[in-house]
């Protein structure tokens, strides 16, 4: 039998143009976030990540990938699919922000209201999500995350490496600055 494999924590799915990317496309530092819209720790990290992008707007871009832990968070999968439906209409980040800013309103009724607030057609999006038009996309993100060693949410990769520390603003800024070439 061969040598035991090590448990790795490196990003194995490279960032492509099919990803949701916020910030300059050619930014020297990429943060890949695996997140769950119903996870309170992701909600807590959201303003810090937004602030990192603001304070390091020339050097950092953020990639968001779905990692709904549906056995813990019953609304997470639908929220992820709704964000994808918004993404189809070039409004992914607006929907993403609404979801993280309204984590107590992710039940289907309030979620539809949120879709309308973002300026998207709720009936049309509900129909797409009901037939899981974006289910494969969400699953694809999740599977890639599992293979990369995502072990909970949120998991961040800064460059190719999993960020192991806390998610407060000073720690994130330091992590980004030490990764910047």
């Amino acid at each position: 039998m061969s040598t035991p494999l090590q448990v790795t924590a490196r990003l194995r799915v490279p960032v492509t143009e099919t990803d949701h990317i916020r910030g300059p496309l050619d930014a020297p530092v990429t943060i890949v976030q695996y997140g769950d819209f119903q996870c309170p720790y992701c909600g807590a990290a959201h303003p810090n990540l937004t602030e990192v992008l603001r304070q390091r707007q020339d050097t950092v871009r953020l990639v968001y990938r779905h990692f709904p832990i549906t056995n813990l968070h019953p609304y997470a999968e639908r929220a992820a699919e709704v964000a994808e439906a918004a993404g189809r209409r070039d409004r992914f980040w607006e929907m993403h922000d609404w979801l993280y800013e309204h984590q107590d309103q992710l039940d289907p009724v309030h979620l539809s209201l949120g879709v309308a607030q973002v300026g998207l057609p709720p009936d049309e999006i509900d129909a797409e999500v009901d037939r899981h038009a974006y289910g494969d996309r969400v699953r694809h993100d999740f599977t890639g995350g599992i293979r990369s060693g995502v072990n909970g949410t949120p998991t961040l990769f800064i460059g190719d490496h999993r960020h192991e520390g806390p998610l407060d603003l000073p720690t994130l800024l330091t992590a980004v600055d030490t990764t910047t070439p």
């Binding site: 035991p4 090590q6 448990v7 790795t8 194995r12 599992i146 293979r147 072990n151």
Partner: peptide, 17 residues
């Protein structure tokens, strides 16, 4: 295959897969 992770580190599922 076998792997012992530090108690405080969730080893994830990548090694298993």
């Amino acid at each position: 295959w076998s792997y012992l992770s530090p108690a405080e580190v969730n080893p994830g599922a990548d090694g298993i897969l």
